[in-house]
Design a protein around this nucleic acid. Structure first.
Lengths: 342, 342
DNA sequence: TGTTAGCACTCAACGTGCACGAGTGCTAAC
DNA sequence: GTTAGCACTCGTGCACGTTGAGTGCTAACA
């Protein structure tokens, strides 16, 4: 016995209904609500087959059926290949980005907010990480006689700053001169390369000791943070609206998963070259995610760097809606960040 | 009939027990667990009196009593006046701040994390807000031919930056000259005053039009953000551990309160000159907070600016522990931010 | 006059038994 | 291959009795 056209249509109807109601769906429901031109008895036979094939499960003997992870997998694969994704009105997303946002962090956290309020699920957004950011400019801003602010602008437009102690007897003009010199030396270099370059400078500039170590520290710090990008989360409490999570223990385990960013970062990793990565329940490989699905999409910025936007919800997620929102939003973000690199 | 010493001791025992167990406490429990040298019958009489006075309530006729908001108020007032707060070992808090943190945002969000993990309640921390930040320095950092980064350092050490479009034909030296000039004009001014000052400059510098409006926008933006400081939250899901919030509907209403920062900001406002502000249930004036207490403490930084740290938990909060943690942590923060203004 | 023991009373919580209904699986007829 | 019919299963909701924690009151005691 194999999967045929009719079985698939019935399975689809079951999944659609279950996504809506979160209740086990019976043969009668399908034959009535989704007019297939078949009686409940026939549906029953087919459902029995589908169960044997591993697409459906029964919570208990006289209840309706619920789709398995395998069923959702089939369902989304079909969705992805049928090209039904682009139906969303892009304008409704575009509006959210009207006021031009300045800082990368703001864009990312705002995107997470928007995404969660559009989907009613929990949204996660990672900032774009160019594999190796390069320094475009370095400037020292005098603050007091003994301290200055060092500002580094990278080619991806991200700004890093830190307060450092300066050496005595450096006025504004001296700092400016040093800024110019350092910019000339460091432009186009990665932070790793910059560290070496600064190292070479040290002997020649003994009296600038303090200042150089300050800059060195900042560069090191940036390198470390590079590895752990800041993930923005929106609507973490949305999950509580769904009956699956009316059990407080489950809700807690979800929320603490969300709060530990490492696992989340792992889930956001795109697999392969696909536009979307969909991990359904067990496919995530995490026990806490057994009843959850995470859908992610990547977006691109100008200089080959890319970030990820994603949605976490129950396995009975509104896949079609989520996919089209992610699709549109990914494009918007790519545009926003591609055209203007702030 | 009035409150006497013995009634108060019994009330205290009831509150202590209820804080621990979250179950209505009966007369027998008190007479056995807390040896008062009184039989349960006597306790019963006293409890009856306490109920009449409004300190206790009965969920239903044959259940134990639970403390009212009025009782908690009496309890914490006594706690505050008895000076039992300082018993905590400061070292356990100090360790958390070992590695010097650079940015105000990081300090604040880190403090929220620490506070929530120490108390097991939800923690909220507002950054210090000097009533009127003043500009200490302004610098333009060239990025490309047409864009630059403007960086403003304020007297509280907070850095604001934004990418702006520049006018054509400005090289590094020209930008530096403008930076110097603007710094001279704006140092010591508030952002509001700075806006006026820039306005005056406009006619004299027609060919710097773009650049000036860019700076103007940043100043405006800062002014707006000034009103809505970024509150950091830690352990928002901690509340779910408490039996009061095993009802998902309640949990949801709490989490969405937490997510809308305006109301939260309102709750963080200190009242009067007290070291602590304690708002118990109805005292908050918010329906969502009926069963919750928020305890806040202020901390000071060098230049007269102050921020708030606080804890939100069920009304049956472990007040003594929370107060001493807040006390120690407030001091640590004041020290950390007082000595070094980053 | 304050304290305590005893007793009747109340009421939430829990378990049991029962009827109901949704849903299935199987069989026989079309 | 499809469908109608029927017996069977099992979760849900409801009524009902039991249990136990806790109170309020009264009478006795110090």
């Amino acid at each position: 016995m194999a999967m045929d056209e009719r079985k698939f249509r019935i399975l689809q109807a079951i999944i659609d209904d279950y996504i809506l109601t979160a209740m086990p769906v019976g043969s009668r429901t399908i034959s009535k609500k989704y007019d297939m031109g078949l009686s409940s008895a026939t549906i029953r036979n087919e459902m029995s087959d589908l169960e044997e094939l591993g697409y459906l499960a029964q919570p208990h003997v006289s209840a309706g059926r619920i789709p398995s992870a395998k069923a959702y997998r089939l369902y989304v694969d079909q969705l992805l290949h049928s090209g039904q994704i682009d139906k969303m009105d892009p304008a409704s997303v575009q509006n959210y980005f009207e006021g031009r946002l300045r800082k990368m962090e703001d864009v990312v956290s705002h995107a997470a907010q928007v995404l969660s309020s559009l989907t009613h699920y929990t949204a996660v957004v990672t900032p774009p990480t160019s594999p190796e950011p390069r320094i475009r400019n370095l400037q020292l801003v005098p603050v007091t006689g003994q301290s200055a602010l060092v500002v580094i602008v990278t080619d991806s437009g991200i700004v890093r700053d830190a307060m450092i102690q300066t050496d005595e007897g450096l006025d504004d003009d001296a700092l400016f001169a040093i800024s110019k010199m350092l910019t000339a030396k460091l432009t186009g270099k990665t932070f790793k390369e910059a560290l070496d370059a600064i190292g070479e400078l040290v002997p020649a500039m003994k009296e600038r000791q303090k200042l150089l170590t300050g800059i060195e520290n900042l560069a090191k710090q940036v390198q470390e943070q590079q590895a752990a990008p800041k993930i923005a989360i929106g609507g973490s409490s949305n999950i509580l609206s769904y009956p699956e999570y009316s059990d407080v223990e489950k809700a807690r385990s979800f929320l603490s998963l969300i709060e530990t960013r490492e696992k989340l970062a792992q889930l956001m990793e795109p697999t392969g070259q696909m536009a979307f990565t969909i991990r359904i329940g067990p496919e995530t490989g995490m026990e806490e995610m057994r009843d959850l699905t995470i859908v992610t999409a990547t977006y691109m910025t100008g200089n080959e760097s890319h970030g990820t936007i994603g949605v976490i919800g129950p396995t009975r997620m509104q896949y079609q809606k989520v996919l089209s929102i992610l699709n549109t939003m990914g494009k918007q973000l790519s545009e926003l960040l591609g055209q203007d690199e702030n």
